[in-house]
Design a protein around this nucleic acid. Structure first.
Lengths: 384, 384
DNA sequence: CTTGTTTGTGCAGTAGCTGTACAAAGGTAC
DNA sequence: GTACCTTTGTACAGCTACTGCACAAACAAG
């Protein structure tokens, strides 16, 4: 976990972050405004970034508007990039991502071996093949909780045992590696580049093929807790007398409201890897039975949302994946149940939106790898 | 809310905070160690603090130990103080508190009028009577959620309507006023001066006469959420089919596990203001019936703790007030149930301790008033 | 009285801003 | 086209909050 808890130390990091979340391009005047610094400071800071080939200044364009037109600040092609990887039950996705959050190239690899060591070898080979001279490091998203030291105690849905995943990967990769939980990273990505932009306290929930994960982003930083395990929304109790959960508890939100719960209500049984696809096809043209099952699941979700809202006090809630689709089938119901459970109106009157990013997890992994650069751009080679 | 979310901006604030949590006295060498700075920096910083009469250096004493004995750094009597106030259903407590967290004087006032405006007039008079030349400001703890702008939407147990409490108090007080929720402030106080010292992620729960509140302290800062309403542990759902709660929901932890819940199980009915006292007397020599009721309540509490642990990932859990007493009657039961509900062993294997402070709420209110000084000591008048 | 260890001090130096004055680049009015 | 306004970038001196180094002070052990 590469310092995601640390806020940028100085103004320079803030500037680079601002440019990064603006998609890699912004007018100099707008940046000065958003940083709240003087114009001369901006000149100094941009000089520092330019020394490190992190920005290029375009002195021509700019929209008029009365006075001298502002320069455009652009992240150039030779700026640093990172290699992001996503581990999924059925395979890997690897991508090269540039500052600004743009995916420059991507490749996928089906999981061929159930043995972690063999599978990781293949993953590392693919990741290494993405390395170019300007790659800073690797970020890896894992469908498992991840401890601050890089240990993944239980990639339940992969069938892997507890592994010192970061250490294992570092043995095969020659650049710095950071790893974290996939749902946490998706939350971070939606905050930086998606539906959570500008939020001060973002609550994010999502479902994959199985399980229900999420994350909280407070003032731009992932809420990681003491060990890195914070925000396991799938395992808050929504009904102590409910179904038993593989985690050992009963009535967890995950067993009551994830994709499998929905399929169970419908009496559908499909293999793990095609759960999400099946859900999607069912929701495309929902029958009355499907809608009723959706209603049951949404009701459970709203109970969980209520508990979370009372703890987190979010100013935005983003629902990733098909969770957003389920919500949009009956937003008023979910909002109503949330309002019942929320302790105060302010806790419930929060914008709820589906996620905006198709590759939130992958982009989040890239954010993880970019974080050291954003935290302290000056620590990176000043080059010519 | 006076900037409790802001970490000290500079090293000077960190130093003053370190001295503050050390009880107002520490050796210069120990401080240098804990700040991780050079000895010359410490000299410079102590000079800055001395210029502001915030410290006195005692060059004599010090324990030997091989080399030159280290000076003692002491907060002198003329250092700034604050006036802290606690609003309770049956009256007010007001105290003058010094740096280091020592209560210098205190007074109480029974609540004479059910009218907020009259009651607040009396409170302000008492608070003003505590003002001396070196008082920096006021901190007030309220048995209600408090919004970041000082609005208290529902002091349910006082019977007061929503009030712009901070504004109302400021009209009668001539020094800066900060207000916040009492349970949040108790959490902050236990972190700075009590059972939560040194914790990076503290989860605190407590009960008063009625209700169940708490707070989270992350890296030394109160977790306040988007509006200031974060961490209402009393209103997470522990049983959707459970008793209805005045908040409009059902099966809230508060109605299932607070003091009234315990008395309800025992068929005892006493007026609000004597609930806590009655609980205390019952627990002093518990009968088998009392123990059984305690068991029921502890079981509910553990369900809530499980949900909270899975979200917060604390490295310490502190139970304030009689919650700590209930826990200590059967710690293994609570720990066991928590382990069942926690998603991972690391989330449950957390030290659980009763609170250490008799006046946690009052001390927390003082912390609130001290915060601007700790955030930026240089902003306060230099020279003697 | 020497040696060793730990601690405080003086002072020159530096990074990272900050403010001010001014120049540049556009539009608009006449 | 020229004068004038607005907005923006630039140059440069100055400042604050550290940082590092060399050295002196205070004790204990021998």
């Amino acid at each position: 976990m590469g310092g995601v808890t640390q806020a940028p130390k100085d103004t320079l990091g803030q500037l680079l972050l601002e440019l990064h979340v603006s998609g890699g391009q912004a007018s100099r005047a707008a940046l000065t405004d958003r940083l709240g610094c003087g114009r001369s400071v901006m000149g100094y800071l941009l000089g520092e970034l330019a020394d490190r080939s992190l920005v290029r200044i375009d002195r021509t364009g700019g929209k008029p508007g009365g006075g001298r037109p502002s320069h455009q600040v652009i992240i150039p092609p030779q700026a640093p990039t990172v290699v992001a990887a996503q581990i999924q039950p059925d395979g890997f996705t690897v991508a090269t991502v540039g500052l600004g959050g743009k995916i420059l190239s991507r490749s996928t690899l089906p999981l061929r071996s159930p043995q972690p060591s063999e599978a990781l070898d293949e993953l590392c080979e693919l990741m290494n093949s993405h390395v170019e001279p300007n790659v800073l490091g690797f970020g890896v998203a894992v469908p498992s909780p991840v401890r601050a030291d890089g240990y993944a105690p239980a990639a339940l849905h992969l069938g892997w045992p507890g592994l010192h995943l970061q250490q294992l990967l570092e043995e095969h990769l020659r650049l710095p590696v950071s790893i974290a939980n996939d749902a946490n990273l998706a939350a971070l990505a939606e905050h930086r580049h998606g539906a959570g932009r500008g939020s001060h306290q973002l609550l994010y929930l999502t479902t994959g093929n199985v399980g229900l994960g999420g994350g909280v982003v407070t003032d731009g930083r992932l809420f990681l807790g003491a060990h890195g395990y914070a925000i396991e929304p799938g395992h808050i109790t929504v009904d102590p007398g409910g179904a038993s959960c593989p985690c050992g508890s009963t009535g967890c939100l995950e067993v009551e409201a994830d994709h499998r719960a929905l399929l169970r209500l419908l009496g559908v049984d499909v293999p793990l890897r095609s759960v999400a696809a099946r859900i999607e096809s069912l929701l495309a043209e929902p029958t009355p039975e499907v809608l009723e099952a959706v209603h049951r699941v949404n009701t459970r979700l709203a109970i969980g949302l209520g508990s979370l809202a009372n703890i987190v006090d979010a100013d935005r809630i983003v629902l990733g994946g098909t969770l957003g689709v389920l919500y949009e089938l009956e937003p008023d119901i979910v909002r109503g149940k949330l309002a019942e459970r929320a302790f105060l109106a302010d806790l419930a009157h929060v914008p709820i939106t589906p996620g905006e990013l198709a590759d939130s997890v992958l982009l989040g992994a890239a954010e993880l790898a970019f974080q050291p650069l954003l935290d302290d751009p000056r620590a990176f080679p000043a080059g010519r």
